[in-house]
Write a protein that binds this DNA or RNA. Sequence first.
DNA 1: CTTATTGGTTCAATGAGCGAACCGACGTGT
DNA 2: ACACGTCGGTTCGCTCATTGAACCAATAAG
Lengths: 175, 175
Amino acid sequence: MALGKDYATQECSIARALEVVGERWTLLVVRDAFYGVRRYNDFLVHLGIPRAVLAARLQTLTAEGVLEKRRYQDSPPRDEYVLTDRGIALWPVLRALSLWGRDHFTENRLRIFRHASCGTELGSYGECPACGTVVPAPDVEVVPGPGLDPNPADPVSRAILKPRRLLQPIEIEHG
Amino acid sequence: MALGKDYATQECSIARALEVVGERWTLLVVRDAFYGVRRYNDFLVHLGIPRAVLAARLQTLTAEGVLEKRRYQDSPPRDEYVLTDRGIALWPVLRALSLWGRDHFTENRLRIFRHASCGTELGSYGECPACGTVVPAPDVEVVPGPGLDPNPADPVSRAILKPRRLLQPIEIEHG
DNA sequence: CTTATTGGTTCAATGAGCGAACCGACGTGT
DNA sequence: ACACGTCGGTTCGCTCATTGAACCAATAAG
């Protein structure tokens, strides 16, 4: 993790997990990856994170197998960062955090997660109450809630406003 | 959170949650609280955390309503820190993190979570496969797995070794 | 009267996060 | 040919958080 020591003495899979995703900004980078953000610059403007920190996080997440660096054009050479299976497996963590944050610290709902195939809002452990199954991340649809600013400044936030599935790459409108 | 800025620009309940529990050590303090640790000194020896940091974390967790400071003796005045409902609501987050850590970063299982009333191991979203219900934290029993050191140095780790329910206060053996 | 226990606070050193500047490879406009 | 813009970084000086050790106050135990 950092600061000389990791969670050294801890025999615990929670501690082990936090050594990978417990640093500042890391889980927000992963969250953005679920929202379809893939490029350095898009993470940068959407998160307002210092460039050096973003570069460091992307590197450790790649090294830990949470993200995969993938070339998407050759000239100039450009890479994008995509969630691996290991990264996608973090979805329950983010969902649980999101639920806790909304239940205890926000007024209006900011984003609503639904089962894409039937439109039903997900239950408290990520299941579809209508279908009775736990919904995997690619089948989750995100729609903006009433508390979300409908006219955000940065293009990435604007791209995320449209109802979309998780993991679907964002499309930036230029102009 | 820290460092001058919180996750300022983020309109997101995940970011909001991380402002409360996203700092270094914080989620491990909460985890210990689930394991029944309640006293300053017990957190201290079990986590190997610097005293100043522990004091700071306990204070913000108390201020945010995750822990409650409760007097348990008057002379000398001594307080213990106990999870509130808001703190107990973090159980799904810890469970999800634990599952992810164990599936991706540990060899042998360290701890096993079971439904106390029937002994069945919890499923991947915290449900009891036998009973078909989601098991609330106080009904979860923790038993040590094969990967856990059976003879730890500190008394808190030893107290946690016995199969116990979550939230049940630990009993330290003196001597 | 000395020592131990509990729950802290204080302090100097170190390391991580911050923001601004810089940079290299490549496209684009003129 | 040359200036300018974009993308994905690296470098650097500053500040703030974390660390570990020392210190402290209240009380109990021997």
